[in-house]
């Protein structure tokens, strides 16, 4: 994984020497790594685009303190594909295969911060798939949530839920 990321970073830093680099935009991750991207890619990221628009395009270095240098290349990769119109089921399947649960979540938060509609839609489906047929405890861990029910509330809830589905499938084995 580390290798892949660094190779992507290499290809990105190569673009620095590209003659058209004056037109590029620098995205600075939370851990101070600079990623040069084409301005068209910024258009996919509403947060970045509105930053550029507000400054009349004079400022082309954009700090993204909430996004790590680990996550940003994935985001850029997805946006590049999206602009090229090359988001296919196969690409998405490959893309998501590389990501563990924690990374999917981090990317979702990044997509939310950058306001990338397509990536949000895609990742929300991925998350939904990953919590499908999992136990309540698994979902709590996945979402980073503590059980805050009182025993009385839990008993009450069980009574309510008896009215929903019968014979709910036994929970799948937890895995992480």
């Amino acid at each position: 994984m580390a290798e892949e990321v660094s190779s992507q970073m290499n290809s990105l830093s190569i673009s620095e020497t590209n003659p058209s680099s004056s037109a590029t935009i620098s995205l600075v991750s939370g851990d101070d790594i600079v990623f040069k991207v084409e301005p068209t890619i910024a258009k996919e990221m509403e947060t970045v685009q509105s930053f550029i628009d507000e400054t009349d395009g004079k400022i082309t270095t954009i700090p993204l303190p909430n996004i790590s240098s680990h996550d940003l290349p994935y985001v850029i990769e997805y946006c590049e594909k999206s602009i090229a119109g090359k988001i296919t089921k196969e690409f998405e399947a490959e893309f998501v295969k590389k990501l563990n649960n924690e990374e999917v979540k981090e990317l979702f938060l990044a997509a939310n911060y950058l306001n990338i509609k397509k990536l949000l839609d895609f990742l929300s489906q991925v998350i939904a798939d990953r919590i499908a047929n999992k136990s309540v405890e698994y979902v709590r861990r996945y979402f980073g949530i503590e059980n805050d029910f009182t025993p009385e509330e839990e008993a009450k809830l069980r009574e309510e839920l008896a009215w929903t589905f019968t014979g709910v499938d036994p929970d799948d084995e937890d895995e992480n």
Partner: peptide, 19 residues
């Protein structure tokens, strides 16, 4: 966005996660 992708059965399970 996430909750909208869940089936009725999954939504019922989500009810049990937290208040």
């Amino acid at each position: 966005l996430i909750l909208n992708q869940l089936s009725p059965k999954e939504l019922c399970r989500m009810l049990e996660v937290c208040v």
